[in-house]
């Protein structure tokens, strides 16, 4: 009698666990990523008089998962290119394209619904204390690393994405030079 009861209880527990596991699997989770392979509207503009280079692009922020997720924090930073970086001030800002750009670059936490995509604008201003041609010689391609924090049903995760700006195309060009 006891044995039958234990077998029945184990069978019930096993069935329940299996059903929950199947339900969790069916529900899935969010899968949010900065699609840096699909970057668009890239522009790099030189302002030689102010020794500045302005870089801008739009990056799709996409949820390919089966649940919505929240992008709570996003930070970006340029890669380190050695001593030339000491002569540069690089200001970077990110925003959802539908939101106004905040001067401080504050990222407001956002929900990304399943199977949707939002465009994110990345802006960089490079201010140089040395000749811009020297900067471009040392940094022909500027890589920007984006760190983003996703809160979803399965937990909190930090992800990383990379995008690049081609500064080399500005080499030898004058004020207002622009490339895409």
């Amino acid at each position: 009698m006891l044995t039958e009861f234990i077998v029945a209880a184990l069978a019930f527990a096993g069935t329940l666990t299996g059903a929950l596991a199947a339900y969790f699997w069916y529900q899935g989770d969010s899968e949010i990523l900065f699609e840096t392979d699909a970057v668009r509207d890239v522009s790099v503009v030189m302002n030689a008089a102010n020794r500045e280079i302005h870089c801008r692009c739009l990056i799709p922020l996409t949820n390919r998962g089966r649940q919505q997720g929240m992008v709570v924090n996003v930070f970006c930073q340029p890669m380190y290119y050695g001593k030339i970086m000491e002569k540069l001030e690089i200001l970077q800002r990110l925003r959802l394209l539908r939101e106004p750009m905040r001067e401080s670059g504050y990222w407001e936490a956002v929900i990304i619904k399943k199977n949707t995509s939002q465009l994110v604008e990345l802006e960089l201003t490079i201010r140089s204390h040395t000749d811009l041609n020297d900067v471009i010689r040392e940094i022909p391609w500027l890589t920007v690393i984006i760190h983003y924090q996703v809160v979803s049903k399965s937990g909190i995760r930090w992800h990383l994405a990379e995008t690049r700006f081609n500064l080399k195309k500005l080499q030898g060009k004058g004020d207002g030079a622009r490339c895409r």
């Binding site: 929240m70 709570v72 504050y106 407001e108 936490a109 956002v110 929900i111 809160v151």
Partner: peptide, 9 residues
């Protein structure tokens, strides 16, 4: 999260 205005978003 996201339910309030910054900085409490």
């Amino acid at each position: 999260v996201t339910g309030n205005m910054p900085p409490f978003d």
